[in-house]
Amino acid sequence: MRPGLILSWALIVLVALWALVPGVFTGYDPIAGIPAEKLRAPGPGHLFGTDAVGRDLFARVVHGAVNSLSGAFVAVAVGLVLGTLLGLVAGSVRGALDEIVMRVVDVLLSVPGLLLALTVIILLGPGTVNVAVAVGVGSVASFARLARSEVVRVRRTDYVEAAFGSGGRFAAVLWRHVLPNSLVPVVALAALQFGVAILAISTLGFLGYGAEPPTPEWGLLISEGRNYLATAWWLTTLPGTVVVAVVLAASRISRSIGREDG
């Protein structure tokens, strides 16, 4: 394992712990502020500084992890399950069904992810779960395409033909050979999409379709900090840096999946 990869895993584990046991990392309340300590710059007392109503920004980032992470999990789950299923069916059955599925995927791909998400939001209404689902729907097409191309690739290999040649039934060969060998790149995409979903969820949160204030969602934090650009740089810069770091870590881990040297 390379140092960068170790760092990436460490960061993801840290953020996961923020989501699970935020109290261990900060004693401050993320919702109730101390007006006397408003707009303090980052320092020993407040690692990330405080906002306009005196809330500790680090506490808000730590407590916000659960929103971003769970949203990203839901989004990836939606994309992974729906997309992989579509791709698997298309790739293993082929024929007319394959054609239909792939044309549907073409249509989904022709609409940019954010617009697709906005369409889903206009139907379902705003909210954290809806945003997560909306982002997930946007990734169905990529999962479907990758899963299908992997299945098609693996089905052409000699070892799959050899499995049929040694008396394997269709379902057994699919389960024993095609599925395990096509899944690695799909898992790598899932890791990458985890980062992409965090980005998309924070974008939708920023636009105001996700969590309601004063929930400490990362995108919303940055949005709220916009009003203090001239006076309190940390309100936007620091939460954004956390988002960038988490997304970078996810993409680094994604690249290591399926490669032996990491």
Binding site: D158, Y159, A163, G165, S166, G167, G168, H177, P180, N181
Partner: peptide
């Protein structure tokens, strides 16, 4: 059938025992 390419005709994720056993299971 025995294939030309000994790299492509064996499932990379299976152990040798599983590969040889597969026809017996089938």
């Amino acid at each position: 059938l025995v294939y030309q390419n000994p790299y492509g005709s064996l499932d990379p994720r299976q152990s040798i025992a599983d590969i040889v056993e597969e026809p017996l299971r089938n």
